[in-house]
Design a protein around this nucleic acid. Structure first.
Lengths: 249, 249
DNA sequence: CGGTGTGGTTGACGTGGATCAAAGGGGGTC
DNA sequence: GACCCCCTTTGATCCACGTCAACCACACCG
């Protein structure tokens, strides 16, 4: 893959050692549920970190699958590309979330993962993960939960794409972000979007103009304050009401 | 798929013992990649079969998660329900496919699984599966592939819902069915739909009227012949062309 | 500082699919 | 065989969102 581009960074990749045991993202990442001695064993397996600059690919569709990645800092989007050039964002990942699970099935990645800002991931060699999780039941179980969570999340997106209208989708998106920021100790109400309107639209199955209009509408209604990518949610319950469609008309 | 006569066979549920070793769905189900002695061990773990009559639930959202299921005969749909009553079909499962993976993450199911016809599943107690897959690496790996495949499949559906128009969606759906029937040794071109127009529409993010119109259009164009639920695909390449959007206008 | 480029907003207009409505099968039951 | 119920088809109308286009805001750069 493109480890090369990293050459510009003055720290060598190999030099970075991950330490799950010292990571504050434990409770939402793979180490969750492991005891200290088990986490130490995980430390051995999670070999290196890797820095990925904004707009760079962590992996591309077609790349051979060798490892999964845990986001340490920064954030990513994943997208799939159709032959004809259409593409669709399938998800946004932030710290503590796992990337690359799509690659297991065919042993090559089926989507692209691109950093939305300068980011860093932990590289988790998959063969080693399977090996260790054969010995450590808690790790095995947590890994299964992570995969299952991804499936449930995808079902939620399918629900959103299949049966919600534009403003409901955006409201759901903002509430989801808010909740994930909260889980990471950030403000539930105020944050910076790392993605463009176009990327949000792609994820939500809308055009960027529609996303923009929905933002403006929310602003008019006093639900949020929007300044470019800076979002302040003023009325969380109000956004939640939007998700009940009947209140909508 | 339609081993039809099975529904009428007077064998009690409890008495049925599954035997992966004698199952002709091995190559698309959990046993794939295992050697004979390993499959024997899997036989021990896959305790019972369970019959589910048409329209009955295999499980419901909220049910405690204890096992995953492999479809032996018949077919299922899974759907998620929103509080307000809206629901959406998230998938259709046929023989050899695995149901219930959504339950792992929260230890309770997050969707409903309903039989589309009289069906039978193998019950795979999950705790035992994790246990055995700690000993049998090939089983562990195959299970991971199955989960990953589900994630990739979901991404495909998100793509479809987010960026295809009605006829493209239906074409993709028919081609997908065709390919899955083929993999099971049935005709790629002629099959019975087990689901209603409404269920297809829900899955594809369309209203049943739109699905019906698209079927009629395909019929006019000589792409398929439709008689109620009996489908004959007359022009597979023609359907594939529809998936390239530019050929469309 | 002015130029340029990328992303965001807003308006006017068109259209694909939803909605509403009515009528036509098929397959079950008595 | 007659009735009923559910599913499907088809037509007429409507509207949410896409499309096209112009303009604006901020960041970067010489």
């Amino acid at each position: 893959m493109q480890m090369k581009a990293l050459a510009t960074i003055p720290i060598t990749v190999a030099g970075l050692k991950t330490a799950c045991s010292q990571c504050n993202l434990q409770e939402m990442c793979l180490p969750f549920g492991l005891d200290n001695s088990e986490i130490d064993r995980l430390d051995e397996l999670v070999g290196t970190r890797r820095k990925v600059k904004r707009q760079q690919n962590l992996y591309r569709a077609g790349d051979p699958f060798e490892a999964i990645f845990a986001v340490r800092t920064g954030s990513f989007k994943t997208d799939v590309l159709l032959e004809d050039g259409r593409d669709q964002v399938t998800g946004f990942q932030m710290s503590g979330e796992i990337l690359g699970l799509d690659g297991i099935s065919t042993e090559s990645h089926s989507c692209n993962a691109v950093a939305l800002e300068d980011s860093e991931v932990c590289v988790i060699p998959f063969a080693k993960l399977e090996e260790l999780s054969r010995e450590v039941g808690a790790l095995q179980h947590q890994f299964h939960k992570v995969m299952s969570r991804e499936i449930v999340r995808d079902h939620g997106v399918m629900m959103l794409l299949g049966s919600m209208r534009a403003e409901e989708r955006l409201a759901a998106f903002l509430l989801n972000l808010s909740q994930r920021f909260t889980a990471r100790g950030f403000s539930p109400a105020e944050f910076h979007l790392r993605m463009t309107r176009d990327e949000i639209g792609s994820y939500l199955g809308l055009k960027l103009e529609t996303v923009s209009r929905a933002f403006s509408k929310f602003q008019e209604e006093g639900l949020v304050s929007v300044q470019q990518k800076h979002i302040r949610i003023l009325d969380i319950p109000g956004l939640k009401v939007l998700l009940q469609p009947h209140s909508n008309r």
